[in-house]
């Protein structure tokens, strides 16, 4: 392909002190794609995102955005290059109003008319935020805070949006609603996204391509249709099980991945 990928990660390794959280991860996101990274608790998904967005400095490997090496750059530089991280657990600014939170999302931008247009765009996708624009963000419900976090991320007009567990702690109905909006944003606004999730079913339903992470490594990579069809994924992430000998088989299969 002619165009360089939006994000190109090669052999990334990150540590928490002596603990190796990411053990050589390579992945790629192309423009317009919605790529998901699946994995259980502690697989290193969040660490991966933190390393990409510059909050953590990786020990080894490279992170390239449109071919430009941004490994170890400061977070604000990375946001200016078009990567915005929507963190897990809706890290909003609790004492500021919804509107001020959204305005902070556009911190790195200067064109006021474009910012105003994008704010209207965010409000059109999340009408509840428009309704509550003068409310303190900390008083919103969990789902609304998640919407606010996504809306705030959109305000940076990102080349690539890193979404960390948008389904965390939300009811199935809300998860559905938020993922519908995520998918619409990807298709209608052309926002390239990298979606990190534990909820494989809903993530695979919206994604084009998927990676599976276990204990700091990528163990599978394929189109989401193929992943959803694969036996391992069905068994371990989608909860489809055949009756016989599940426990024994689990061990064996997992071992072959490492």
């Amino acid at each position: 392909m002619a165009q360089k990928p939006v994000l190109d990660v090669k052999n990334l390794e990150s540590y928490y002190g002596p603990i190796m959280a990411i053990r050589g991860v390579s992945l790629e996101v192309r423009k317009g794609q919605l790529v998901t990274v699946l994995g259980a608790n502690g697989a290193g998904k969040t660490t991966l995102l933190k390393s990409i967005s510059g909050v953590m400095v990786p020990q080894k490997g490279t992170i390239k955005v449109y071919g430009e090496d941004l490994t170890g750059a400061e977070p604000d530089v990375i946001v200016r290059k078009g990567l915005v991280h929507v963190p897990e657990g809706r890290e909003i600014f609790p004492l500021m109003t919804v509107e001020e939170n959204i305005a902070m999302g556009a911190y790195v931008r200067t064109n006021k008319t474009e910012i105003a247009q994008d704010r209207e765009m965010v409000f059109s996708y999340f009408p509840i935020l428009a309704e509550r624009r003068n409310q303190q963000a900390g008083t919103l419900s969990g789902g609304q805070q998640q919407m606010l976090a996504i809306g705030r991320g959109l305000m940076a007009k990102p080349e690539l949006m890193l979404l960390d567990e948008p389904s965390l702690g939300l009811s199935p109905l809300l998860v559905e609603e938020i993922f519908t909006i995520i998918s619409r944003l990807n298709k209608e606004q052309g926002v390239t996204m990298m979606l990190v999730e534990q909820n494989a079913r809903v993530a695979l339903s919206v994604a084009d391509y998927g990676y599976v992470m276990e204990i700091g490594r990528i163990v599978m990579a394929d189109t989401s249709a193929n992943l959803a069809a694969s036996e391992d994924i069905q068994e371990f992430y989608l909860g489809v099980k055949e009756e016989t000998q599940r426990d024994q088989r689990r061990w064996k299969k997992r071992k072959t991945w490492r």
Binding site: S53, G54, V55, E74, P75, D76, I78, V79, R80, V84, H85, V86, P87, E91, I92, F93, P94, L95, M96, E100, A103, M104, G105, Y107, V108, R152, G153, A156
Partner: peptide, 19 residues
């Protein structure tokens, strides 16, 4: 506002590109 944001949630301020 950015100063307020940085004090209310430092990590999120980083994610928003606030230096």
């Amino acid at each position: 506002l950015a100063m307020q944001a940085a004090s209310q949630n430092q990590l999120a301020a980083y994610y928003m590109g606030i230096p």
